[in-house]
């Protein structure tokens, strides 16, 4: 069909943009390095300055990979959840999974001071502990969601329970915050602002591997996702089992979001906004087009946000959540304005 050419052009453009932004993420930062030095460091060429080697390979590279992987996994989770719940405001946070991660981290960072021991000031809480705590919290919530979804017939009920679970978990976190010491609280708040720079190079590769595994799995669900666009009964009438598809996809996106949040903290708006951007660019609801479109747009937007947050040339950098929210919120407003005459079923 005639739109195929246009779509391919957009895919190419978004792919090139992502590549360009990835390189820019390696080249820019608070320290200005000449491009020649960046390239030498990348390929570990002889006579590279030691600082350049460290900056490019140990700071900028894992950060860029983390941004890329997180952009991909949050965005495609957002797309899948929006299709699954047939709700434009569904996103990775709706199932309460990122709240679960927050609870895990809060328990580790804050419970020490609640119990009278200031763990973080004693430098007893390391990066890996926080990651594992976040993962445990997120998977706990995911487990509850799956347990519930096996027992209710309506996917919207699952959505509402997920949102309520998120509130309940956040309430527990605020109680912990209320009773904790200021140092611990500061550490927790920092985690909650999200960051692409906490992951090590190994962790960033693990994240990328998770994202790509997710991509591979979700491509097998393009046809069922399309079928679900018409609602559960139509999907059944053309041979799909909506409940089974919903459970598998909640599990897959849940794991993706859990792993992502564990390494970066909660990242706002990316998962919610990117699918809408992709729909706007490609003007289609076909999941076979939207899935790759969302992946590429998500990669490009996350890399762009990370670059913007670095404020190249300045000593300071902005919290990534501030940037993703500033970019994401207008996108959502645009979508609502555009679809105000449409009833979402």
């Amino acid at each position: 069909m005639h739109s195929t050419f246009r779509n391919n052009l957009w895919f190419l453009l978004l792919g090139l943009l992502s590549l360009l932004l990835f390189v820019a993420n390696l080249g820019f930062g608070s320290v200005m390095l000449p491009w020649a030095e960046v390239l030498k460091a990348l390929f570990h060429a002889p006579h590279t300055e030691a600082t350049a080697l460290v900056i490019v390979n140990q700071y900028r590279m894992p950060q860029a990979i983390t941004a890329l992987a997180t952009g991909i996994l949050l965005s495609m989770s957002g797309l899948v959840l929006q299709t699954l719940f047939r709700n434009p405001l569904a996103g990775p946070s709706v199932l309460g999974i990122s709240s679960g991660a927050s609870l895990g981290v809060a328990v580790v960072l804050l419970s020490g001071s609640v119990a009278g021991i200031d763990l973080s000031s004693m430098a007893m809480v390391g990066n890996l502990t926080v990651v594992l705590a976040a993962l445990a919290g997120a998977l706990l919530v995911l487990g509850i969601i799956l347990f519930v979804s096996a027992r209710v017939a309506n996917v919207i009920t699952v959505l509402i329970i997920g949102i309520m679970l998120g509130y309940a978990v956040s309430a527990v976190v605020s109680v912990l915050q209320f009773f904790s010491g200021s140092e611990d609280l500061h550490a927790y708040v920092l985690w909650g602002l999200g960051s692409f720079s906490k992951a090590t190079i190994q962790q960033s590769f693990l994240l990328l591997f998770t994202a790509l595994a997710g991509v591979a799995i979700l491509f097998f669900y393009v046809k069922p996702l399309n079928a679900l666009l018409l609602g559960e009964e139509y999907a059944r009438s053309i041979g799909f089992r909506p409940m089974r598809i919903q459970r598998v996809l909640i599990l897959v996106t849940g794991i993706l979001v859990a792993v992502g949040t564990a390494f970066t903290g909660p990242i706002a708006f990316l998962g919610l906004a990117v699918p809408h951007l992709a729909r706007g660019l490609f003007k289609t609801s076909q999941q076979g087009v939207l899935l790759p479109a969302t992946i590429l747009t998500g990669a490009a937007l996350a890399l762009f946000c990370n670059l913007a947050a670095k404020l190249p040339g300045y000593d300071i950098s902005l919290p990534i959540n501030a940037v993703t929210s500033l970019v994401g919120a207008p996108v959502i407003i645009w979508v609502i304005m555009k679809s105000r005459h449409v009833k979402w079923g």
């Binding site: 393009v222 009964e233 139509y234 009438s237 053309i238």
Partner: peptide, 30 residues
Amino acid sequence: VVLTDRFSDLYLTAFDVVRMGRFPHASFFG
């Protein structure tokens, strides 16, 4: 079946809707 359920995904074309009826006859990837 033809049901009374309303669905109105923003960018679903008439062709997209009809095409889904052919899914039982299409390949695994649609």
